[in-house]
Design a protein around this nucleic acid. Structure first.
Ligand code: SF4
Ligand code: SF4
Lengths: 139, 139
DNA sequence: TATAATGATACTAATATAGTATCATTATAA
DNA sequence: TTATAATGATACTATATTAGTATCATTATA
């Protein structure tokens, strides 16, 4: 069970690199080389981030991408949502059945609590918090 | 992001039903009918549970399956492990790189903590605890 | 000894993830 | 004004994972 898939992973890497450009537009071609991610794949990812308001894009010569907001407003949870959908630990352990006692089920209560905890942790991780730990960044 | 896949889900349903048989062997054919799970698929799942020591099986006429241990010793976490592998929220957010500062990374620390929390919650959920909530069980 | 069960294993189908290709649009700078 | 270097949109292919099927061998029992 993996929390983060490749899209999200690449998105994080790219966003961190873009954040460090001090508002200088960076084109996909350059990013792809630096991060060693296949250019068309990275492009697709950045296009999605643009559509979803995380990045701003500039067409034409000298164009490229910029963060749409400051790094402390970009949350890991949102990136996961964009590329992997909502964090739902479990719709209900018996997915297909309609439970008559959904409100009192102890199991459901616990899985719900677990889900809330995971989400709140993911909400507390921002791009800024990743950047702060500058010493441990690489590639 | 889904915590429990169909194998695990079916396994839980089946185990709960087997647990309620008071040590009477129950064959796959019967279980499959009751739980509305395709017979060969459920069979595969129970065979795995047998191999992994969760169930005991009895061949031949009048054969079937029984729990290998008491319901309070059967943990949700183990079932997830069997069918979906280890709960690893994230090997490391930049999977492919080798990080020079893996020990001091704040992000890693937090994801690790999150993973530990999830695992310990899953360890606290047993088949017995699901059965206790008898009123809310079904099909 | 027929039968009703599981064991083992290989196969197919469906879905999700990962990655590619291509043409259209647009902004810039020579 | 026009070649060029960028993104936008979209459709496609490939790979991996998940879901489900099929079949023959083995075994216990009535
Ligand atoms: S509420 Fe509880 S008993 Fe009902 S379907 Fe959900 S997990 Fe099962
Ligand atoms: S330790 Fe931190 S910085 Fe290093 S690879 Fe892991 S998440 Fe990234």
């Amino acid at each position: 069970m993996q929390l983060i898939n490749r899209d999200t992973d690449y998105a994080i890497k790219a966003l961190m690199h873009i954040a460090k450009q001090n508002s200088e537009r960076i084109p996909v071609s350059e990013l792809a080389k630096i991060l060693e991610i296949p250019n068309p794949f990275l492009r697709k990812i950045l296009q999605i981030l643009n559509k979803r308001g995380v990045l701003n894009s500039y067409k034409g010569k000298g164009g490229g991408f910029l963060l749409a907001s400051s790094p402390d407003k970009i949350f890991l949870k949102d990136l996961i949502n964009i590329f992997q959908g909502p964090v739902k630990l479990n719709e209900c352990i018996f997915k297909k059945s309609i439970c008559p006692d959904i409100k009192i089920c102890a199991l459901r209560t616990r899985i719900d609590a677990l889900e809330k905890h995971v989400i709140s942790e993911l909400e507390s991780i921002t791009l800024a918090s990743l950047l702060e730990d500058g010493a441990s960044l690489h590639s």
